[in-house]
Simulated scan of single mutants.
Amino acid sequence: MEKQYSINNFVTLSANGKVAINSEEQQANLYRWFKEAGFGQSELNGKIVFFKIVNNVVVPSSIIAMRYEFLHFLESYDFREWPEGVTRLDLIEWFYDTRPPKRNELLRDFLYRELSKTEQEQYLTYSGRHHRLVINPDELPSCA
């Protein structure tokens, strides 16, 4: 059974078409949703990285990827407690007028976790930074 969400968990919608994230609780619910969607944050080689778990594999991700997955959620989910007089278009227009999620301590509190060695390997493999190809010029075939 699909989890039920109230639109009020994430944003405040008012009958005049105004949409806003008005509380830290709504912001926390957004970050909790990111975590449920498989997103995470960790540190790798001294840098903060964002990832997503896809089919039990850790792959590189970003704040922007989180933002657009949330957009898809807003566009397609059948929310409970939708107020009368507000359209989904009002919600989508609000989304495009907002900035990406804040990289703050609250985000870190919800998303941060240490990656296991296997997960680090997966992340590095999918980011293309795992193996550097070392070529000895003497071993290259001749072009002559």
Score class of each variant (00 low, 15 high):
residue 117 K to L: 13
residue 92 I to Q: 03
residue 92 I to L: 07
residue 88 R to K: 14
residue 115 L to C: 03
residue 54 V to Q: 12
residue 109 D to Q: 02
residue 126 Y to N: 04
residue 119 E to T: 03
residue 42 S to Q: 11
residue 129 R to A: 11
residue 59 V to K: 01
residue 82 W to E: 03
residue 58 V to R: 05
residue 45 N to K: 09
residue 68 Y to S: 07
residue 43 E to W: 03
residue 66 M to C: 06
residue 135 I to A: 12
residue 133 L to R: 08
residue 44 L to S: 09
residue 102 K to G: 12
residue 81 E to W: 01
residue 102 K to E: 13
residue 84 E to Y: 05
residue 122 Q to D: 06
residue 128 G to N: 02
residue 81 E to C: 01
residue 112 Y to Q: 09
residue 99 R to Y: 14
residue 115 L to K: 02
residue 125 T to N: 11
residue 56 N to W: 13
residue 106 L to M: 07
residue 53 I to P: 01
residue 71 L to C: 11
residue 113 R to N: 13
residue 125 T to L: 10
residue 101 P to V: 07
residue 86 V to I: 04
residue 66 M to H: 00
residue 55 N to H: 13
residue 55 N to T: 12
residue 111 L to Q: 06
residue 90 D to A: 01
residue 94 W to R: 08
residue 122 Q to R: 02
residue 93 E to N: 03
residue 70 F to E: 11
residue 81 E to G: 03
residue 61 S to E: 00
residue 108 R to A: 09
residue 94 W to V: 00
residue 104 N to G: 09
residue 117 K to N: 14
residue 72 H to F: 15
residue 62 S to H: 02
residue 98 T to G: 02
residue 59 V to A: 08
residue 62 S to V: 00
residue 64 I to V: 10
residue 93 E to Q: 06
residue 70 F to S: 07
residue 41 Q to E: 12
residue 42 S to A: 14
residue 131 H to C: 12
residue 104 N to L: 10
residue 47 K to S: 07
residue 92 I to E: 06
residue 103 R to Y: 15
residue 87 T to W: 08
residue 104 N to Q: 13
residue 49 V to F: 14
residue 94 W to G: 00
residue 46 G to N: 06
residue 102 K to Q: 14
residue 88 R to N: 15
residue 118 T to C: 02
residue 118 T to H: 15
residue 126 Y to S: 02
residue 73 F to C: 05
residue 66 M to Q: 01
residue 74 L to Q: 07
residue 80 R to H: 07
residue 129 R to K: 10
residue 88 R to H: 10
residue 78 D to K: 08
residue 130 H to F: 09
residue 58 V to C: 10
residue 47 K to T: 09
residue 53 I to E: 10
residue 123 Y to W: 01
residue 67 R to W: 04
residue 59 V to D: 08
residue 91 L to W: 02
residue 127 S to R: 06
residue 69 E to A: 12
residue 85 G to F: 07
residue 107 L to N: 00
residue 67 R to H: 15
residue 56 N to C: 14
residue 47 K to F: 07
residue 123 Y to L: 03
residue 77 Y to T: 06
residue 102 K to W: 15
residue 103 R to K: 09
residue 71 L to T: 06
residue 51 F to W: 12
residue 105 E to F: 10
residue 73 F to V: 07
residue 89 L to E: 15
residue 129 R to F: 11
residue 135 I to K: 08
residue 132 R to Q: 11
residue 49 V to N: 07
residue 74 L to E: 04
residue 107 L to M: 08
residue 91 L to S: 02
